[in-house]
Design a protein around this nucleic acid. Sequence first.
DNA 1: TGTCAATGCAAGTAGTCACTTGCATCTATC
DNA 2: GATAGATGCAAGTGACTACTTGCATTGACA
Lengths: 200, 200
Amino acid sequence: MSAPASSTRDRIIQAAIQTFARDGLQGATTRVIAQEAGVNEVTLFRHFQNKEGLLAAMMTEIVHKSHNRGLGEEVEWTGNLKKNLRRFADEFYGSLASDEAFIRTMVGEAKRHPEHAKKLIMDAVKPVRDRFIANLEAARKAGLVRRGIDLGIATDAFTAMLFGGMLRMTAGFHWGYESEQFVATCVDIFAAGISPASKP
Amino acid sequence: MSAPASSTRDRIIQAAIQTFARDGLQGATTRVIAQEAGVNEVTLFRHFQNKEGLLAAMMTEIVHKSHNRGLGEEVEWTGNLKKNLRRFADEFYGSLASDEAFIRTMVGEAKRHPEHAKKLIMDAVKPVRDRFIANLEAARKAGLVRRGIDLGIATDAFTAMLFGGMLRMTAGFHWGYESEQFVATCVDIFAAGISPASKP
DNA sequence: TGTCAATGCAAGTAGTCACTTGCATCTATC
DNA sequence: GATAGATGCAAGTGACTACTTGCATTGACA
């Protein structure tokens, strides 16, 4: 079928992900991407027509990968809220950290490529967000979350905490603790921050 | 003295800040920067020798500006912890948002220009962080913060929350609430998260 | 065996980039 | 009025960019 053609195409896309992440959308050249894919530069243009076409194909591949990751899908939140928050936080932070380079360049270029940024948000971050909100709602029904907090905003605050923290931890400066401690403290503070007052 | 010369130099640096922030460190061209400064391109090179020299001069100017801002310097934290957190958060978020474009490109290019990233962290973010930690320490001495929390990590978690939230809010997607509500919720959750249990 | 699609290779095009050179002009100061 | 430093202008350099063209090679399949 399309096995061999797709294989070349895939190698180019993988090289594009790597190169765009490392060198930036501007800094990455078609020459280097082709080279990194072990392919002639012309082949790249024959597959994607131009650099923007390659970029678009790469974005849909990224979204596809994020679906396979299925962050926060595995388990229902029953019982111990803090334990569930911790598991989510570990997974979430880990997947952010493993895509650090790509995330950095997308944060930087978001305003220069609004369509791609929007696609990423709609197709990759929003599903995770929605699942997390649903889980918080269930926890609230179980009396584990205090009233008076917007669960959408709380979700965004929690993920922003891990997101911003990851950018900070990987910025090439040592802060006197490890990422595991950071994640644990985030969970600690957030869990205490949304739980009902211990004794009314 | 150097009044007229410095004026030209300053105009170039201001144009550089604007242009680098908008177009990225790679995307910004000396041609455009000079044009934006109302100056001949050659003048730019006569002042800074090359693009990297201009970049360096711009960074020291940014650090200088951040000192003048003096975030979190004004008041001692007495009494109402949550009120102080809220005032800090409003100021902090506001200054992040007003420098959004610049922050985005620096997040994106941090790994490609480690020296500049490090300088920014040491000279612009660390002082604010240290002051905030000191304030939290004072609050803890007053019994307003529970034990068992690393105040450095808590500080970083709080600022990461606002930092990540600002990147999210300005990403060109509407989340169903305004930034003021986001900041308020962050403060709410953080304040509840670090305060001692309401009744032991 | 012949055909066709995918790929490689060599070369080239037009545009842009950072940066340079040489010379004219202006302005302030002595 | 002479001098010097800062600036403008025109032109150019070499490197690099995205992208194209024409032709040869390969390999699968009919």
